[in-house]
Amino acid sequence: MDKVLSVTGLGKCYGKGCPLCITATGPEHDTNLCPYCGTVVAAHDVSFDLHEGEILGIIGESGSGKSTAVKCLYFDDAPDSGEAVFHDGEQSHALFDLNAAQQRRLRNHRFSMVYQNPNLGLNFGISAGGNIAERLLMSDMLDYARIRKRVKELLSRTEVLPSRMDELPKNFSGGMQQRVQIAKALSTNPPLLFLDEVTTGLDLSVQAAILDLILEIQQELSTSMIVVTHDLGVIRSLTNRTLVMKYGRIIEAGLTDQVLEDPQHAYTQRLVASAL
């Protein structure tokens, strides 16, 4: 399988930083806050590869750095150190060496993000169809009839009634808003999709439906995905491989089955044991 993304040594600190930040924090010190200078080491030495059509899970408690890592890769935040190479067909892009315009181009055309809160991913002032149209217009689709057709396809694919495409997303239920967000994210057929806690806050039956949808799409389009969650159920049902993060470090990585059946690190063991 071809690599889509390879990340090496990604790090991000919030604060002024000191030479002792890295050695004084981490799971073995039970903190990510540097005791000398008060810097938050949000992520340190995060390395992993993502292959084509693979779903990679990142699990960890709040503040473990899982979202920070994804934010850096989606250019929502700039990392302090590390490299990430995105392999796009023939081309390879060193993500953090690109200028701002090139980064935005990749973000708009080749990546997509589905946020936990639909407020972040959707503009509630324009119709559901308009939200999806925005991404299509960004990639230079300027034919009104074609845009309408594509929006309808996407919405019926994500099981939102196409007849409601001209309604404002605020009239939709949480699950439907999430489906619109997914439809928007998929509109440009991105090879890489980030999912940040997509099912958090939805009721269980809706969660299951959304997870089903994501799996189906992944099988149809073989989109590579990075799924950030603190929910073991999501990890179990979606992902092939899992990274476990704590205090900004990756403490365990491996096949999802392996991590869940035979956890090595004490934290992972506790996590698996605590799952109902």
């Binding site: 324009i126 169809g129 308009g130 149209a133 217009l137 960004m138 300027l142 009104y144 845009i147």
Partner: peptide, 8 residues
């Protein structure tokens, strides 16, 4: 694109 969304 966002201006075009307005026209849309």
């Amino acid at each position: 694109s966002r201006l075009l969304v307005k026209l849309y």
